[in-house]
Amino acid sequence: MGTSKIKIEKFNRKGDFGIWKKKMRAVVVQQKCVHTIRDGSDFPEVMKASKKQEIQELAYSLQILNLSDNVLRKIDEEDTATKI
């Protein structure tokens, strides 16, 4: 199975946040990181902590890379995908 690049516009506070949020959820699901945008309690119990951390970091980076600089400045203190 090949990989596909998903491109969505960065959220810049001028567009529709609800639409952007739906698109970001689809990206996170596609990357198998959906556990991180909830409270994280639904990670499989048998999953290693290192794997959970890897998934959390991937979800965080996906969100960061899809926000404009001016929005990133507003959420600079947030350090997890859930907090963003």
Rank of each mutant, 00 (worst) to 15 (best):
I6T: 06
G15D: 09
N70L: 03
F11N: 00
L58I: 14
M47A: 04
Q31G: 04
D39E: 05
V34G: 15
V27F: 12
N66Y: 03
V46P: 14
L62V: 15
G2R: 15
K74Q: 11
K5H: 12
P44S: 07
Q63E: 07
E78M: 10
Q63P: 00
M24G: 04
C33D: 03
I84P: 01
S61D: 11
I37S: 06
K10D: 03
K5G: 09
R73K: 10
T82W: 10
E9W: 03
R13T: 04
F11K: 03
E9N: 13
E78K: 15
L58V: 12
Q30G: 15
E9M: 08
T82M: 08
E45I: 02
S50I: 13
Y60E: 00
L72S: 02
F43C: 04
I19R: 14
Y60G: 00
I75S: 05
T82N: 12
E57N: 08
I55L: 08
K48P: 07
G18D: 13
R73D: 11
A81M: 01
D76V: 11
I6W: 05
K7A: 12
R38L: 15
R73V: 02
I84Y: 02
I6R: 11
S4M: 09
N12A: 05
V28N: 07
Q30D: 13
F17W: 11
P44G: 05
G40L: 00
L65M: 10
T3A: 15
A81N: 02
E77I: 11
D79W: 11
K74R: 13
R38P: 06
S68D: 15
M1W: 07
L58K: 15
G15K: 05
E78I: 01
Q56N: 10
R13W: 13
L62K: 08
K74C: 06
G40H: 02
V29L: 09
K52Y: 00
S68Q: 04
S50V: 13
E78L: 11
K14L: 13
S4P: 00
G40F: 01
D69G: 02
S61R: 12
E57C: 02
V71I: 01
G2K: 14
G40W: 02
K5I: 09
